[in-house]
Design a protein around this nucleic acid. Structure first.
Length: 490
RNA sequence: GGCGCGUUCGUCUAGUGGCCUAGGACGCCGCCCUUUCAAGGCGGAGAUCAGGGGUUCGACUCCCCUACGCGCUACCA
């Protein structure tokens, strides 16, 4: 074992689907390990039996895999320091708690939840700082042991009452906490499960973690952790408290504040690489001008020194931009597959399956530069399917032509006449284009002026995929039928 | 209330005493390209570096105070 090896971990508690803030922490920890030729591990912190959501374990794996984050040790693949699930390590925590008690660094607390609640209520009423009052701090060992045989109890850690505990944070520098202000926390619950504060130390030590990388919300409890390390005679890990990701309300992003589950973005048609790039930019930068950062660059250049301390706002606009960039970067062959699977996924069930692969292949290139997310593929393609164009109000036919119904009528009639002259064998985008451009003369109007009527007749909307290609793909019969239908509508 | 963290264009950020009349990106605006919509190209507006004191020849950068925001304050993580 190389003592200086960088070993980081992502240790989520399976209490819900991982949200983006949480995953960003995973990304940084992973990147830190990879950038230093270290190891990245996954550990499940399932010590809160009440809040456990079994399905979230799968969501955790799925989230990580979707983003392409790999781990070297974990619950599913094992490793030399397992098990990697806290509920399977209970004896270790209990042993540590006993050890702490033997050293006088912890004690049994027999206070009931009711008494604790009442105590806090009283403190609040008296405008005092809330905190454990130390009632069980001085119970003699013999009495404590005796009561333990018949009463439920927790094990509280005895915090120092004087001096300071100083955290050396990689991102924030030294942070000092007054010991007198800290109160004794529960390390082992009455159900025999440890709290995070105890489990963290045991596991990080046992798993040889070098850097504890976590959200800023943990910084206040750092003195607890530092003191436990000291009481146990253990060398603490290095600490890096990442800035929070906040929502539009500037408050910590959480399950409550909107759709923040990472997998919602996977389902919403975002590319994992785009999401990774976006998340990485929240709190970290490669240099002074790089926005598009590849996975390789990240894994090679990531460093905690370039993480900023201030909270970042989750900005969908930038995500959209990045997603577009990555979409345009997809090789043609892969793009067709993506279009096929997302068309199938996002086209309404009324469209017959299997989808026409040849049609998809012709439409795919048209899509690439104009959709913000993969989920937009179905809606953009929908007009290709079915006998008629998607329903639209008749006013749309002339709204953007600058004229009225007569204008639309003329455009449609001329277009029908011109396109009708193209035989089925030469029904290609070029011929279609020539025919429609040829309308400028008879109509006495510029193409860009009257073309919206045709977009509406064919696609059901004045904006959409390029008209000439769309008409070519749609085919002669259906095109003419749609133009006729539009003419009848006017 | 207490403790802690934070504060550079609307947003994400660059910046570690002189390179800053503060750079990049998103968004916004305009022009170009153009069959619509996009994409792309070019350009523009946008930050008295939260405010106030210091230190220094010189501060966005160092120190202090204030304000504001957020986090924590559970037998949750």
């Amino acid at each position: 074992m190389n003592l200086s090896e960088v070993r980081t971990r992502y240790a989520p508690s399976p209490t819900g689907d991982p949200h983006v803030g949480n995953i960003r922490t995973a990304i940084f920890a992973w990147a830190m390990a990879r950038a230093n030729n270290g190891k990245f591990l996954l550990r499940l912190e399932d010590t809160d039996q009440a809040r456990l959501v079994p399905s979230s374990v799968d969501a955790i794996y799925e989230s990580l895999r979707w983003l392409g984050i790999d781990w070297d040790e974990g619950p599913d693949i094992g490793g030399p320091h397992g098990p990697y699930v806290q509920s399977q390590r209970l004896e270790m925590y209990q042993a540590a708690a006993s050890n702490l008690m033997a050293k006088g660094a912890a004690y049994r607390c027999f206070c009931t939840a009711e008494r604790l609640d009442a105590m806090r209520a009283a403190q609040a009423a008296a405008k005092q700082a809330p905190g454990y009052d130390g009632r069980c701090r001085a119970i003699p060992a013999a009495e404590s042991a005796a009561r333990a045989r018949s009463e439920p109890f927790t094990v509280r850690f005895r915090m120092k009452t004087a001096g300071q505990t100083v955290l050396h944070d990689i991102i924030r520098g030294d942070v000092a906490f007054e010991n007198a202000l800290q109160d004794d926390f529960v390390a082992l619950k009455s159900d025999g499960f440890p709290t995070y504060h105890l489990a963290l130390i045991i596991d990080d030590t046992d798993m040889r973690i070098s850097h504890a990388i976590r959200g800023e919300e943990w910084i206040s409890s750092a003195p607890k952790h530092l003191q436990v390390y000291e009481a146990l005679g253990l060398q603490p890990t290095a600490f890096a408290h990442l800035p929070l990701i906040v929502g539009p309300d500037r408050k910590k992003l959480s399950k409550r504040s909107g759709d923040t589950a990472l997998l919602d973005y996977a389902r919403g048609g975002y590319l994992p690489d785009a999401m990774l790039n976006f998340l990485v930019l929240l709190g970290w930068s490669l240099d002074d001008k790089t926005t598009i950062i590849s996975r390789e660059q990240l894994l090679q250049h990531f460093s905690l020194e370039r993480v900023v301390p201030n909270p970042a706002l989750f900005d969908l606009e930038k995500l959209h931009y990045l997603n577009g960039q990555y979409i345009r970067d997809i090789p043609e062959a892969d793009w067709l597959d993506l279009v096929a699977t997302w068309a199938d996924r996002t086209l309404p069930p009324t469209v017959a399956r299997p989808l026409d692969r040849a049609l998809l292949a012709r439409a795919a290139p048209l899509l690439k530069e104009r959709i913000p997310t993969l989920a937009a593929i179905g809606p953009a393609l929908q007009f290709f399917f079915g006998d008629s164009a998607p329903a639209y109000p008749r006013e749309l036919l002339w709204e953007k032509t600058g004229g009225g119904p007569e204008t639309a009528k003329a455009v449609l009639a001329e277009a029908i006449a011109a396109l009708d002259g193209i035989g089925a064998a030469s029904w290609h985008a070029d011929e279609v284009q020539t025919a429609i451009r040829g309308l400028e003369g008879p109509l006495g109007s510029k193409l860009r002026k009257f073309v919206s009527a045709l977009y509406v007749a064919i696609e059901g909307s004045p904006t959409g995929l390029p008209l000439f290609d769309s008409i070519a793909i749609l085919g002669r019969e259906r095109t003419l039928a749609r133009l006729q239908a539009a003419l009848a509508l006017v």
